[in-house]
């Protein structure tokens, strides 16, 4: 698997998780993805991602959410994430 940037924002008060994630997006490069661990669905993050050329997958548990973020043009990483998350 490629380079993973893991960000755990579960204990941050809103809206800090969003601020942290936007700052982390600047570090994302081709061949890498961000795995975000949150305690709830980050609805406000999604439009920022979509508008700015990022794709994402969401895995939802009982009290936690994982969001996998990748550069949309990076088809390779998207496919790898799809395979792993199936």
């Amino acid at each position: 698997m490629n380079k993973e940037i893991f960000v755990d924002v579960r204990e941050l008060p809103a809206p800090e998780p969003l601020e942290v994630m936007v700052n982390t997006l600047g570090e994302l490069e081709f061949g890498a993805y961000i795995k975000m661990h949150h305690r709830q669905m980050p609805n406000m993050l999604f439009p920022i991602l979509t508008r700015n050329g990022y794709g994402y997958f969401v895995q939802k548990g009982e009290d936690e959410v994982f969001v996998y973020i990748y550069i949309k043009k990076d088809k390779q990483i998207k496919k790898e994430l799809e395979d792993v998350l199936k």
């Binding site: 609805n43 406000m44 999604f46 439009p47 508008r51 994402y56 997958f57």
Partner: peptide, 12 residues
């Protein structure tokens, strides 16, 4: 797993 459909600008 899902790729959310919340792709529209969600905030007014």
């Amino acid at each position: 797993m899902f790729s959310s459909n919340l792709s529209l600008d969600q905030a007014p």
